[in-house]
Amino acid sequence: MMRITGIGQYVPADSPVHRLDAAAKIGVVAVFTVALFLVHGFAGLAVLAATVAGATAVSRVPVRAVARGLKAVALIMVLTIVANALRWQPADALVRLGPLAVDGTGLRTGVFFAVRIMLLVTGTSLLTLTTSPVQLAGGIERVLAPLKAVRVPVGDLAMTLTIALRFIPTTAEEAEGIMTAQQARGASFDAGGPIARARAYAPVLVPLFFQLFRRADALATAMEARCYRGSGGRTRLVEDRMRTADWVALLATGTLLVVVGVLL
């Protein structure tokens, strides 16, 4: 069976961060991102980093899970530092490598940007690590609710998103099954050039799409049989609402981060 242990995948736990309303968390992350781009000194970054570190500690998400997201952007971070730090014969050189040299100001800028990327990734992945996909879809629905006024079908989009999330593991299993079956019939997926390889995937993709369309059709029938007629008039098992605690958390972090962003 294929296990999808992706970046930022939900880690169930019972922590204050998990309990926070998804819409509030989306708000906090949005404010955090704005603050991150307003900040112009290391002092500000340090406060933001401390906020992320504090939230991670409170969330009881294993540091490994957060680090997995960083691994994916490590290369970008290194390139950011190198591209900023290396100069052609600069005035203020820390280390010289022939005509190239590491420039002090450039190094500082590079590290600043790299840390900013790092905080952006950890901050946003903390949202998905502590919020189940369904709560997240519900949160997005409520954050985007004002768009309903201009006839954007927010509820239906959120339902589509939820169903897509539900079917990722099923489809992965199915793809793996079809691939193994075609391999057993002598198919190979790693021989030849890119075109030959793309062609080799037809025996996997054709049945997979066929299955997906068949499933989509059957699922639509099943949903109709369970009285689904669009998102209007639906209620929820768990009515997520912004409670006092969520408003307090949102306003407090919001104020803190904006102050930090503007002042530091």
Binding site: S132, P133, V134, T162, I163, L165, R166, T170, R215, A218, L219, T221, A222, M223, R226, C227, Y228, R229, G233, R234, T235, R236, L237, V238, E239
Partner: peptide, 29 residues
Amino acid sequence: VFQDPDDQIVGTVVEEDCAFGPENLGLPS
């Protein structure tokens, strides 16, 4: 109830799927 259970499960966790019908009926939580 249809043949292939995977074709009719909408929720990402058990209780949420079970709630799908009543949610569509607009019942209170």
